[in-house]
Amino acid sequence: MNSEIGTMRVKSGLAEMLKGGVIMDVTTAEQAKIAEDAGACAVMALERVPADIRAQGGVARMADPTKIREIQEAVTIPVMAKARIGHFAEAQILQALEVDYIDESEVLTPADEEHHIDKWGFTIPFVCGCRNLGEALRRIAEGAAMIRTKGEAGTGDIVNAVRHMRAVYGGIRRLGSLRDEELYAEAKNLGAPIELVKWVAGNGKLPVVTFTAGGIATPADASLCMQLGADGVFVGSGIFKSDDPAPRAKAIVEATTHYQDPEVLARVSQGLGEAMASISTASLDDSQLLETRGW
């Protein structure tokens, strides 16, 4: 019958199914259930949400397998988990646990200062963060089957997410305006393989699904990201660090579907209580930024 597992089409296929949806960070089985009941299309299992990682410092690692299994047993939607940048042994463990997607994430403390994981060797698909088009294409060249713009996790400030989306989508539009012979120099500028640069120039999009992450705290933030071109959103601390997680989770799900409908957005934005305690990214020192991890 010529059956194959782990092909790029199968890996990126799951990301295709997540589109138009919200992927929520959860640290317990109870939170995972709340996320599923709110209509999340997947959950991200982790030890601490980014806001707590930021506040507590120390080394942030892959979640305890016990916790990941509890979350897998609690819900039927896909369960993702984070591995440190370059930490292929954590990724191997996550594959053995049969998580549905691995996020090679700058939110955790990087394990390698030069190399990301070679993602082609895995059956499980990977999602990776990026700040601009070159970074996105380097991750795709390494085998990422899904991309998310990084934003600045754990802040509740959307401004970095917007900057990164503008950089990626603006970069794609710019490639489309170049002449064929100009693409070679541009590939060099971007630090990305020419084949991928040509593909993006010809197709006007990335070859994989592209979500937005980092700083989404309200339904309006979700709508903004979708209107700027995101295929869907990751919400980290924005839900479970807010006053009343369940209604906020449901409101962000509805805002992601009806992102072009201001009447729906006005209705779902009402009465949600306080958003997460937020930090303006402009007040952070360079050393406090998570987005600069990865290259």
């Binding site: 010529n2 199968v10 049969e98």
Partner: peptide
């Protein structure tokens, strides 16, 4: 789970050419 997702050739009733089909969870 996703690790078992696959693509394969299917036989369609009344057709000789196989259909490549992608199964995701």
């Amino acid at each position: 789970r996703q690790v078992h997702s696959f693509e394969t050739d299917l036989e369609l009733v009344g057709e000789t050419r196989p259909l490549r089909a992608v199964f995701i969870r």
